[in-house]
Design a protein around this nucleic acid. Structure first.
Lengths: 253, 253
DNA sequence: CGTACTCTTGAACCGTCTCAAGCTATGTGG
DNA sequence: CCACATAGCTTGAGACGGTTCAAGAGTACG
């Protein structure tokens, strides 16, 4: 069934036992019992097109998602239209937990590429907490991870120069995309426009462009085909005074 | 027993049944069973002085805290000393969850006033998740709330002007402090210096000062005794285009 | 009584913004 | 196939918001 606004729900289930993400080394092992429950918890799959809005600020979504494939970003708007991108989401990330736990969504989510999402039902979250404490703990783990990334982004926007910020952002996205199958081929290609970069870093589009040109002049990145090609991640990290996000293996729900 | 670095552990327990926070209308009701478990979960109390560092970036703390009284702030440092304040913590807030769940602390916490903290043991968190799903859910709730505040702060630092940012920050702190006994008397007094404001908003101290003077000239705030007195919260909210943090009652762990 | 911390103000500088224009793709309808 | 529109990137010039440097005043504290 095809959707009217870039969404379509597929009834064909990608069974969790054949989850394409779970075998990846960045994710933790899972007991068979947990796997069985997640399979039961998962209600279906949702395919969204590039540019589609997955969740809207102000709504009360009945669903909670895990990204199976594709890129998206979370953002908030000020009443006069100024936009702030808060973070990016990639395979293995939860979408909509805030709304599920607290009720109303206070940010929106938009797809940067075609995406496939696992759909869970908000109402069953209590059930999960009651019966699968390990999974509940994993969800808290993922929430803490998101918080940690936000801390880092805030540090960046608040205290780094434009050049450092750009370098940081690109290195950050790279570090996250690495390991979840988004950057199979080198050089790494990130599907964002310079407007996204500007709205993430609190800069104007014009200045972002000039800053990116400086990074390009140093041979760190290249902008092509409406996206970013990363040539030297380590150079970017060094320029940004960023240590990387020192992550071990993480849970996947 | 008095500490060497602004900490002292009191063996006298403030029993959870007589918790001074729980009766406040901003917090949710609690079952007797949950209360009993929290009492068991709580290992003692920690008193810290103003200016003391509660948690340090890079450490692996064995503890997790709930603020019983007093103010603090979370922050991160860049290698060259630039500081970004991430958020403020007040009574009822959890401190150190990130570190407890993921291992290493990636931010520090410093007290803005004398504080009293309930001490929990990190190792028992799994136990809590296993036996008290409602409490586990509450912890996730609190983590989501923190995330929501960070989203809002990021929007502010990224997209609001200096004047709007200052207005937002003061209104935000006010809104949070209201209801947890921190601002008993009017006018509201917030124990932060202009340096804290600057480091929260990503501004220089000098410009922060000039901006605050503008707010003062409009009769919105007054700076006195090394702290901020709020004269017109609604005026600040309007200036910042901020709707308030629309919170219902929240859990307390 | 000196030292430290906080707030305050002025002046010069520069990082970033806004405005404006042009360029290159890509896609669409005639 | 061309005409036109749209989205994204690029560049220059001038204006402005915010930074840095510098100095001084008030208060708290040992």
């Amino acid at each position: 069934m095809s959707g009217q606004n870039g969404r379509s729900v597929s009834t064909r289930r990608y069974p969790c036992e054949n989850c394409p993400l779970r075998p990846l080394p960045v994710f933790r092992e899972f007991t068979a019992k947990e796997l069985a429950y997640v399979t039961h918890f998962k209600k279906g799959e949702l395919a969204v097109e590039r540019g589609a809005t997955v969740l809207v600020e102000g709504s009360h979504s009945a669903h909670l998602y895990t990204v199976l494939s594709g890129w998206a970003f979370r953002y908030k708007l000020l009443s006069d239209g100024r936009r702030q991108i808060l973070n990016y989401t990639m395979p293995g990330d939860l979408i909509g937990l805030q709304g599920s736990v607290m009720g109303e969504m206070q940010h929106s989510v938009e797809a940067l590429s075609p995406m496939l999402l696992c759909v869970f039902e908000r109402g069953e979250l209590h059930d999960l907490y009651r019966n699968y404490p390990e999974l509940a703990y994993d969800i808290t783990w993922l929430a803490s991870r998101e918080e940690r990334m936000l801390d880092e982004n805030l540090l960046s926007v608040g205290r780094r120069s434009a050049l450092e910020r750009c370098a940081y952002l690109i290195a950050f996205i790279c570090a996250r995309a690495d390991g979840v199958g988004l950057i199979a081929r080198k050089p790494v290609a990130i599907p964002i426009t310079q407007q996204h970069v500007a709205d993430t870093l609190g800069l104007s589009l014009v200045h972002t462009n000039k800053t990116i040109r400086k990074l390009a002049a140093r041979g760190l990145v290249r902008w092509r085909d409406g996206g970013c090609e990363v040539l030297d991640v380590d150079g970017l990290k060094e320029l940004a005074h960023w240590e990387g996000l020192g992550e071990e293996r993480r849970p996947l729900v």
